[in-house]
């Protein structure tokens, strides 16, 4: 099963893990991306995530197709949050299951690394003394 969600509501991490589990799966690898308190020494007040939703879903779908071609996986769950997030909030959950752990680890790593490069989602870091769209400028 592949389940992709871009949501303005809090992500249910346990539900993602439950969806990824199956009797055939000997391993579920879960990546949870959370909001960090500081960036380059500056205190983060909040993050604001924005998505180009239909294209983001389509680009995540492409990642899952590539994953299924490269690794013998059972389930792939990718949920990404949008809107205003505070320190510690969950921004993304990726849960990948396979019969053995190597495929699950490698595929999960591939998913988050590729998502960060290709999926049209943006985050703005809001600091005490200003704000910045991440990666926008050289």
């Amino acid at each position: 099963m592949v389940d992709i969600l871009i949501t303005g509501k809090p992500i249910d991490t346990q539900a993602c893990i439950n969806m990824a589990s199956s009797p055939q799966s000997g391993g579920i690898d879960v990546f949870i991306g959370t909001v960090r308190a500081t960036t380059k020494g500056k205190e983060v007040v909040r993050l604001e995530f924005e998505a180009y939703r239909p294209m983001a879903v389509s680009e995540i779908k492409k990642i899952t197709v590539q994953m299924l071609q490269r690794w013998p996986l059972h389930h792939i769950i990718i949920h990404h949050r949008t809107g205003i997030l505070k320190v510690g909030d969950v921004a993304v959950v990726i849960a990948v299951s396979a019969a053995h752990r190597d495929a699950a680890f490698d595929a999960c790593r591939y998913a988050i690394d590729t998502l960060k490069q290709t999926v049209p989602i943006w985050k703005k870091e809001v600091f005490l003394d200003g704000e910045e769209w991440v990666a926008a400028h050289p």
């Binding site: 180009y52 921004a91 988050i112 998502l115 490069q117 999926v119 989602i121 943006w122 769209w133 991440v134």
Partner: peptide
Amino acid sequence: IAVNNEYAATDSLINEQDEVAIIPPVSGG
């Protein structure tokens, strides 16, 4: 530039009914 929800090559043609979007550097995750 994305055209109809796909990253578009610079030589792609744009039609009036296409959905066109500016995609600045992405930073999800």
